[in-house]
């Protein structure tokens, strides 16, 4: 249970994942934000109105998946690092995940990194497709994962070759 472990349950996730039909249509946002806290930068960052404007600052984000293009601008706006974009049919066998990353060293494009699930367990190595450096230092890393892992991977671990602790 999320409140005891920090890991969202399937029931939690069901509320924020778009339906299968939308998932196959292309990149789309998943906002794993389940608690009413006073925070609104995501809604303000979205220029397409896909994250609906908040009536109250404590609202949970509401996404209009038809308006979302998966551009990912909201990813680095989120103070909670709770926003991901997935592109289910990125390739025949692979999906793409864009995730926020604030730990150095940054991986390089093409590098293999460890994929971590919501509990921090390693699910294997995956390839970095793109590293987007953002001015506010919440960088956006795109990784290519097997389709079966697209709803599981939510973080990465980069091997630090120069500074092994």
């Amino acid at each position: 249970m999320l409140e005891r472990t920090g890991i969202p349950t399937d029931d939690d996730l069901e509320k924020v994942i778009p339906d299968k039909k939308r998932l196959v249509q292309g990149p789309v946002v998943i906002i794993e934000c389940f608690q009413k806290i006073p925070c609104d930068p995501c809604a303000i960052s979205c220029k397409l109105g896909a994250i609906k404007p908040f009536r109250d600052i404590n609202d949970l984000p509401q996404v209009d998946f038809d308006k979302c293009t998966g551009c990912g601008i909201c990813i680095s706006s989120c103070p909670g690092l709770a926003i991901f974009v997935i592109d289910m049919n990125y390739l025949d066998e692979k999906s793409l995940i864009k995730l926020p990353h604030e730990i150095l060293p940054l991986p390089e494009k093409g590098e293999d990194v460890y994929a971590l699930d919501r509990a921090g367990s390693m699910l294997g190595k995956v390839k970095v497709i793109k590293v987007l450096k953002i001015k506010n230092k919440t960088n956006i890393i795109s990784i290519e994962v097997p389709k079966s892992m697209v709803m599981k991977v939510r973080s990465i671990k980069v091997e630090d070759k120069n500074n092994e602790r």
């Binding site: 409140e3 005891r4 472990t5 934000c33 608690q35 909670g80 971590l116 919501r118 509990a119 939510r154």
Partner: peptide
């Protein structure tokens, strides 16, 4: 306490880096 007191998004981002949280 029996539950996490801070913001759950903070808890989730630490948990997915492999840190167990024992309430």
């Amino acid at each position: 306490l029996p539950r996490i007191g801070g913001y759950l998004v903070h808890a989730s981002k630490i948990r997915r880096l492999g840190v167990p949280i024992y309430t």
